[in-house]
Amino acid sequence: MHSFQCILFLCIGIISNIRLYAVTAEMTKSKSLSADVGADTTTTLVYDYADYYSLNIINFSPCDSHGVNAFGKVFLPVLYSLVFILGVIGNGLVVCVLVKHRNHTNLTDICLLNLAVSDLLFILTLPFYAHYVVVSTWTFGDFMCRFSAVSHNTGFFSGIFFMVVMTLDRYTVIMHSLTVARYRTLRAGIAITIIVWMLSFSVSLPALTFTKVTNESSLLACSYTPDSYAWELYELLAPNILGLVIPLLVMVICYLRIIPTLVNMRTTKKHRVVKLIVSIIVAFFLFWTPYNISLVLKFLKDGKKMQSDECTLGGNLKLAVTVTETIAYTHCCLNPIIYAFVGQKFMKRAMQLLKDWVPWIPFPSRNDMSDSSYRKSSIMSRSSELTSTIIK
């Protein structure tokens, strides 16, 4: 950018000297004519350079983001495609297993089912955005622009909220098992499901209202265009506060109180459960925190709150958002593994379902994974029941 400014000033100087030379030549010619006719005249030249120094150089030196855009066109579609495929397979299997065994559904299964549906709603919008990145224009119309935005946000927030519900449910079962057992009913699960989905949709309403198709440089863009700074600030604070800070605090506080109780229990599963709890917190923190930090820094940069080289900082932040966004989105692929597939009971049901679908693959036999054999091998004690609630 500095070299461009130097060239621009040099061009301005050359043009100024040419114009000054032309005016001077004209004056010289006029003086010669006056001398020839014997006229005694005096002319004073006053030239104003203020217009040149009042130029906004930034407007004439656009930042070159071709490299970041080219990287995004390759990186984002590939990662979006992988997230879409793995997410649909993993979460789809969770939905199929839980729906097939819906007669044995409890509050934990309801939360797992809704978490999988939330992840599916979230990742089903990724093909639209992948196509948008590749062709650099939105070709699906204003309705799909708004629908994709609200589905994307609703899936994101509902997934986070159901993770919080599962954390609180585990906490109450472990710490207050005798008092809350009668409240963990199917009716309570349905009521919690309705509340979470309504809350998630309400939080996502600004995306539905302010996201629209706009014409930018002869290309159609699907973008969030709020009509005030308050809604722009909301778009930043909602994912950070409701989607990261509060859920992370709830998980850390609840699990820090659960772990000592589990350690003191007489069960062979406690070490496995502690590792699972730690993996839940660490995965959530590592996958989502970099993305939220990148969004905050980009917001500060766009609001001129950070003093630095505009082009260098803008390019780095755009690249950071591109990379961390995709990493954060892959978390929905891990949810089936973290919350479902590590549980022995769910693994048994999933293997039975896959055995029925693809019988030529050598899965464990149905007898080895039957409900009766599973019940015989389980330890019917309070501690094992509680740990089964966590690793279910």
Rank of each mutant, 00 (worst) to 15 (best):
S158I: 00
P206I: 05
M306V: 15
L45G: 03
F299A: 13
N56F: 01
W288H: 10
Y224W: 10
T326E: 15
G314K: 04
V274H: 04
C11T: 06
E325M: 05
I58N: 15
V250I: 15
R146D: 03
G303T: 10
M163K: 07
P206N: 04
P77D: 01
Q352H: 08
L237Q: 04
C6T: 11
V78E: 04
F4N: 12
S365C: 08
T154C: 07
N316G: 09
H331Q: 14
Y21N: 05
Y255P: 00
L220I: 03
P364T: 04
Y129P: 00
F140I: 05
M251I: 08
I280W: 03
H176S: 07
E310I: 10
C6W: 02
I379F: 10
V78R: 07
H101T: 07
E235F: 09
N56W: 00
T179C: 07
Y132C: 02
E325H: 04
S151Q: 13
P226Q: 09
I160M: 08
D371Q: 03
C332I: 11
K318D: 14
D109G: 14
S30K: 12
N56I: 01
H104N: 15
C333L: 07
T108G: 14
E310G: 08
V97A: 02
L121R: 03
H176I: 01
D368T: 02
P260C: 09
A283H: 04
F128W: 03
A39W: 06
H2A: 12
Y129G: 00
V323A: 00
F75N: 06
N59R: 14
T209H: 10
M265N: 03
F143N: 06
T209G: 00
Y339R: 01
C6F: 05
T211C: 10
L178F: 12
T324G: 02
R349N: 03
C254Q: 05
G92L: 08
K318W: 14
S204K: 01
F210K: 03
